[in-house]
Design a binder for these strands. Structure first.
Length: 548
RNA sequence: GGCCCUGUGGUCAAGCGGUUAAGACGGAGCCCUCUCAAGGCUCAAUCCCGGGUUCGAUUCCCGGCAGGGUCACCA
């Protein structure tokens, strides 16, 4: 059979470049020996999720800790799945979490010399190589219909055979020249398949950057490389793109491990040296009694929007992911609390081999400590950013008064002091925590644990003694002084030795005042709260709180 | 079902033939304290099972079992 003629008939494109020329068009990158070139290669199917972020972070860190390049390639070979605006959304979402590309689709960079970065725009490259494969008898046309393929699969399943297009099941592999041209003349649609040279009897020992030595079966499947619309499949596009974009390290989910033999054979057929691969274990979730991969449909916590809405600090999400990515990160963070996470010596080889369960408690903990490190200004910006988008009208109103909010936050969060409040995981909690500092959202619940006479006596007595210029010591001395007036112990030690002799103690006096002023039995330092609220408001709240 | 990956406390996990089997989150308790928060201290809790190899296996080998993944003209 005249393969050159066949190739020309199958891929009649006029001005395809000779495949070899691409080696010069996309030369090896000048880079330091250890610098990694990595990529994120999403299909533009819509919104990016936590799994993507996780993977992107591994890519980005691998590139940037080695002085390499991290680029964005769009795998848009499946027209049906395309969603408008998806690319911008990927870039924006990642940017929100502080992850940026050096190069690639929609990235404004002088480094963009390996594009186009959309696979649909690289059609001629794939077709040039497919043509070359046909000429070399490493690929052939297949006219099988979906029905025929399904029938074969059913037969294979029934006979407990390996499913797929291989060996004697690969009918079109041995089509006669006449038959091929007749089909072509009849206008039958066709795909181009790889003519596999492998055998399922052979094992390949492969070194994965995460899993270590992996034993896989050699590929013997005549996989489709060009679909009937002339667009490549993922497998084919991956081999060509990662070669010519000079990717050194392909980091992808472990669901790809099973198609690794295909990729290895494709690289061989194409005459490329394969990149190094790192197959990451996936994020899992506990469902019922068993673990399962986090799912886009079922699990809202997979969506990145979920974290934005809930008001997690973006850096916290990233750091949480870092703790899963490299377990040494957590210990390192503890030793270097002020350090930028980017200074951590990230290594793909240190990534866990087994799928980690997504742990909300841990995320909450990381988020708490990140928020507790914010300056008053940063805290204000963070909370304001959240209220602008997700808060109530009242919240937005409150955040107009920046100086007042900053005073409140400094107190509530303990900013500047030695004791930082460290229980705010999400912006929303922080915003709700300061409601009582505003008259319109002050919603007291007067749940006193003492009777009317005691409560009113405490309230009245304090109102008489109250002087806004008192410092903490003077303020507390006054609170103490009220205790004996209502039969409470002024000293805790005194109370502890004989609790039955008193109706209560100083902390109970403080509790009554606290409920009156903040509307709740718990709050930060009451003295400071009163100072921020101001005399007029304090006195009003004290009298409003009396039991009638 | 075939093939592949994984298997240390509830969770994330160090560990690479000899350890009292780290640490973190979560849980329980105590202390401190005007309450909350924070902080300090203490406690409970782990090597999937069975065979080997070895003086000695969590660690190496084999076999089970369990969980996950994958078997498309989707990526």
């Amino acid at each position: 059979m005249d393969l050159k003629k066949l190739a020309a008939a199958l891929i009649p494109d006029k001005d395809l470049l000779p495949p070899e020329s691409y080696e010069e068009i996309y030369p090896e990158r000048a880079r330091a020996p250890k610098a990694e070139v990595t990529r994120l290669a999403p299909s533009p199917t819509g919104f990016i999720h936590l799994g993507n972020l996780y993977s992107a972070l591994a890519d980005e860190r691998s590139a940037h800790t080695t002085g390499g390049i991290f680029y964005l390639r769009i795998e848009d070979t499946d027209e049906k799945r395309r969603v408008d605006g998806a690319v911008e959304s990927v870039i924006r979402s990642l940017d929100y979490f502080g992850i940026n590309f050096d190069e690639g689709a929609e990235i404004d960079s002088p480094l963009n010399k390996y594009g186009p970065y959309y696979q649909r725009r690289r059609a001629e490259i794939y077709r040039a190589f497919a043509k070359r494969l046909i000429e070399r008898d490493l690929a052939y046309p297949c006219f099988c219909t979906e029905e025929e393929l399904n029938a074969v699969r059913e037969e294979q399943t029934a006979g407990k055979k390996t499913t797929g297009y291989y060996g004697s099941y690969a009918k079109c592999r041995s089509l006669s020249e006449e038959r091929i041209y007749a089909n072509l003349a009849a206008g039958k649609p066709y795909v181009i398949r790889l003519k596999s040279q492998g055998s399922a009897d052979n094992k390949i020992i492969f070194r994965d950057e995460i899993k270590g030595e992996v034993t896989v079966t050699e590929n013997d499947q005549d996989v489709v490389i060009l679909k009937s619309d002339g667009i490549p499949t993922y497998h084919f596009a991956h081999a060509i793109d990662d070669h010519f974009m000079r990717t050194t390290l392909v980091i992808r989910g472990e669901e790809w491990l099973s198609s690794l033999p295909v990729h290895l054979e494709l690289h061989k057929a194409l005459g490329f040296r394969p990149p190094r691969y790192a197959h990451t274990s996936s994020l899992m979730k506990m469902d019922g009694g068993t673990k399962r991969k986090l799912s886009k449909r079922k699990d809202p916590e997979l969506s990145l929007d979920y974290y934005r809405k809930a008001g997690y600090f973006p850096l916290a999400v990233v750091k949480y992911l870092m703790t899963i990515l490299n377990s040494g990160f957590e210990e390192w963070s503890l030793k270097n609390p002020e350090a930028d996470y980017r200074d951590f010596p990230f290594k793909v080889s240190k990534m866990g081999k087994s799928g980690a369960l997504f742990d909300l408690d841990k995320l909450n903990d990381v988020s708490k400590t990140e928020i507790s490190k914010l300056s008053a200004e940063q805290c204000y910006d963070f909370l304001k950013g959240w209220t602008d988008e997700f808060g109530t009208e009242a919240d937005r109103q409150h955040f107009q008064d920046k100086t007042y909010i900053i005073d409140v936050l400094s107190l509530i969060m303990g900013i500047g002091g030695k004791k930082r409040r460290k229980d705010i995981e999400r912006a929303e909690q922080g915003v709700r925590l300061i409601d009582y500092f505003f008259d319109d959202t002050f919603a007291p619940e007067y749940n006193y644990r003492f009777g009317k006479d005691t409560v009113n006596a405490v309230l009245k007595s304090f109102a008489e003694k109250y002087d806004p210029s008192d410092d903490n010591g003077a303020w507390f001395a006054k609170v103490k002084a009220i205790a004996p007036e209502v039969g409470f112990a002024a000293e805790m030690s005194e109370y502890k030795t004989a609790p039955e002799k008193f109706g209560g103690n100083v902390s109970d006096v403080a509790e009554i005042l606290r409920i009156a002023v903040t509307g709740k039995p718990d709050s930060p330092d009451l003295c400071t709260i009163m100072r921020i609220l101001g005399k007029r408001r304090v006195l009003k709240r004290l009298s409003d709180a009396e039991i009638l």
